[in-house]
């Protein structure tokens, strides 16, 4: 058989069924009696010039035949797989591994601390069990004052109590480090509030404190407004209102535009269009004096906020108890992993 005749046989390959393909394979490329094999066997009998010519062409044809047969085999295999359902269905789910995650309150605390880190604040911490002195009196709470009503405390015996706010760490920090002081203070706080949807006897707080030469109410407003715009969105409106804390003077409450209704009024913001985010103020000179800081020279500002409440506002979480229940579905939902 001549090479050009053999080349004609190439056209049969794409139409061949599995049995015919097997026949063709044997007929053309079979080791013993395949047509092309026969041709190649004759090569040694040819003269050098012809041998080179025929050999090259025969080998090229051999490669072409092999490739055509291979392609047809694969096509037949795919077709068979599709008909019998035995092949790979690439729409099947991938193999998962267990994924973990951080608690949403941890995430919010980190996010808040990170924003303040960029504004020069490092983190400070202190014990959760405190003395009355650090928790109240050094912070300028007068004894037997009604301001204590909002701070109903768990006592541990003697003058030891579970801190009702992270503010005692202000005292500890100012007593140990000279100004300039710029710290944020995350931590657990305790008040004798029975559990309900918005109260918990234990809650997280983030306190902030800056004390230095020349800090003013303008710095307070700018620092906290910058935080709000970084945490919520760049166009978040904020407002400051008078408030009262024994350890700051003047004191100010900061509101942000309601994140749910954008100020139109909704049940979440009690129709006011604003949401209370944090309490703040200029550090009361009595607090500085109590810590041995020169209150004539140094001024400062401080604030406190509740990351649980902020998480509730931002994520629409309706009940503070969900943070403590540790339902795996809740933890997974807020783990930063899209589990769908």
């Amino acid at each position: 058989m001549r090479l050009d005749e053999l080349r004609e046989r190439l056209k049969e390959i794409p139409q061949a069924d599995a049995r015919r393909l097997q026949e063709l394979k044997t007929e053309l490329l079979g080791r013993r009696a395949g047509a092309l094999t026969e041709i190649l066997k004759t090569l040694p009998t040819l003269d050098a010039e012809t041998r080179k010519q025929v050999g090259g062409a025969a080998n090229a044809l051999k490669r072409e035949l092999e490739r055509a047969i291979d392609e047809r085999e694969q096509a037949l295999a795919r077709g068979k797989a599709a008909r019998t359902g035995q092949g790979i269905d690439l729409t099947m789910p991938g193999r998962p591994v267990w994924r973990g995650g951080l608690h949403i309150v941890t995430q919010v605390v980190s996010e808040i601390c990170d924003i303040f880190r960029e504004l020069g604040f490092t983190r400070a911490v202190g014990p959760e069990a405190e003395t009355e002195r650090n928790n109240f009196f050094a912070l300028n709470f007068p004894p037997d004052h009604p301001a204590l009503d909002a701070q109903d405390s768990f006592y541990l015996g003697g003058d030891a109590l579970l801190r009702t706010h992270t503010s005692p760490v202000q005292i500890r920090t100012l007593e140990h480090y000279p100004p300039p002081v710029r710290v944020v203070i995350p931590g657990a706080c305790y008040r004798r509030d029975p559990f309900d949807a918005s109260h918990s006897p234990v809650f997280e707080q983030i306190e902030g404190l800056a004390v230095d030469d020349g800090l003013t109410f303008v710095d307070l407003k700018a620092t906290l407004a910058t935080f709000a715009r970084r945490f919520f969105s760049p166009d978040t409106a904020v407002r400051f209102r008078p408030s009262y804390f024994p350890f700051t003077e003047p004191s100010a409450e900061m509101d942000v535009r309601c994140q749910l209704c954008a100020g139109a009024g909704c049940p979440a913001c009690k129709q006011t269009g604003w949401m209370e985010i944090l309490g703040s103020g200029m550090v009361h000179p009595a607090v500085l004096e109590n810590c041995g800081v020169d209150a004539e020279r140094y001024t400062g500002f401080a604030w406190g906020m509740g990351p649980q409440r902020i998480a509730m506002v931002r994520h629409g979480i309706p009940d503070i108890r969900l943070f403590f229940e540790s339902d795996m579905r809740f933890l997974e939902r807020f783990s930063g992993i899209d589990s769908r």
């Binding site: 880190r117 504004l119 490092t122 480090y177 300039p180 002081v181 710029r182 800090l215 303008v218 710095d219």
Partner: peptide, 15 residues
Amino acid sequence: PVELRPYRLGTVPDA
């Protein structure tokens, strides 16, 4: 005004 002014870094190391 809401005006971010320069500040000095504090003396307290990150906890």
